[in-house]
Design a protein around this nucleic acid. Structure first.
Lengths: 154, 154, 154, 154
DNA sequence: TTTT
DNA sequence: TTTT
């Protein structure tokens, strides 16, 4: 007990968010996030290693993700490891691990084409992008068991 | 913008919490926390280095701290760096940094003397201590700007 | 790229470490770690939720784990998420996620002499008195790709 | 003991790095990093709060910072809190807290060619195009006591 | 001023 | 399947 289960990730989305609107106003978004680390092997060659993570967001966070995140988006994520267990059709016990996202923040976004309207000046953290001036974060402290942040945080 | 400011500490309290009950039900607790790291210097000698941190807790967390933490308590802390600026009496600009605690958890507690009544069996994480079966944590997600957890979390 | 993949856990071991000594002085230890969170449900009842994590430690860290960790040990862990993929005997693609431990620290302590009577069952935090006074940590900064800390860190 | 002292920051540099080359090949870089959080106050108005941090990097990391970081650069930082104490000229005991950086990663990217026109003022996240495609990281695991990564990590 |  |  008295446990801590915390995950911190920075990476890019491999695809647009998959969002499901459930009964009772519940919304869940699933994201695929790639975290890539680069290092030099013993021969001095640069090696890249990518890990793919399954992220799960609920309600307010899911809506924000749906609206602002796209394939390629770079985000900072805080969450916890959560495993789901079930039996597959062959009767084997299966387990799948997901990252339950507690908060996330958009980072310097990619300069996709749809951002024509941006002036590009000013102190936006992202040099362009619709999302630029709307950093998307649930802030620290979004609780996981009952998400109080059903409103978009801006 | 889109910033992250996160501190994670594990250490021991140098003194009992200092708690002030303010008007309007506000409570603030100040803690002194020591984090010690040990390493070997170039001669292979073990060296210890202790850093002292000023922690600040509000309201529900402050009350929990007041009730359960004592000099020597080992805790896990999550928070953020917060600076206060003022002018001292000589007119110098001064700045003091505190850790604003967002959540904390008691870890294996010290076996002080007042714990006689503990049976010592069972699966408590602490082998004894009044606090043993009452892990004190605000859990993830206690918000900092307006603390919703004014109740003791157990 | 520019990725971050970080896991921070505090929990207790569900079993003694499983250690394998491989060819070429390589050592790997596998640990089962439980992180428990407690919260109140909507009815105000206290609920506990335990997540089990598969930890993997190599070389120096594995040796330290073998020597000092036991079922019930409470540890702080820093690591990263790592997935292994393979095909099972039915030809299904399978994936298993492990936490590659980069550093860990034993928690809880001062369980001086009074532990002799320990039955060894249950998840007491220190199943062995000896470990109490020997906090085991690789310190911050143990690299994961090639572990430089093959020596016990004390 | 068994302490943990960890800081995780994401923010933007308020100025170019200040780098000093010391005797014996030692290099130290000092950075000013702003972490901004936004939240809504009780009236629903968006409020921004910026915290400024003094970062200290040594040797290999300092060189990387000197070469790639500029005013406005957005970085992810991992480090620890470190206090320096001294007496000021009026005989007062003074203490200053710095973040000793253990690793950092440049964020934001893909700001390809369109940055040539940058005036350099304001806090755009990438004040230089060149840095954009060269995420600078020491990777996880750069040790703090004796930095082994004196080479640029790419 | 803590802890080992 | 992302990103550089």
């Amino acid at each position: 007990m008295a446990g801590v289960n915390k995950v911190i990730l920075i990476g890019n989305l491999g695809a647009d968010p998959e969002v499901k609107h459930l009964e009772g106003d519940k919304v869940v978004a699933n994201l695929r996030l790639a975290t890539t680390e680069a290092y030099k092997d013993r021969n001095g060659n640069r090696v890249e290693n990518t890990e793919w993570h399954d992220l799960e967001l609920w309600d307010g966070q899911a809506k924000v993700a749906e609206q602002y995140l796209r394939k390629g988006s770079q985000i900072y994520v805080e969450g916890k490891i959560k495993s789901d267990s079930w039996q597959d059709d062959q009767g084997n016990n299966r387990k799948k691990i997901r990252i339950r996202v507690l908060s996330f923040t958009m980072l310097g976004s990619r300069n996709s084409g749809q951002d024509e309207g941006m002036s590009g000046m000013g102190n936006s953290q992202n040099s362009m992008g619709r999302s630029s001036n709307n950093p998307v974060t649930s802030g620290p402290g979004v609780d996981n068991e009952e998400d109080a942040s059903d409103d978009l945080p801006f």
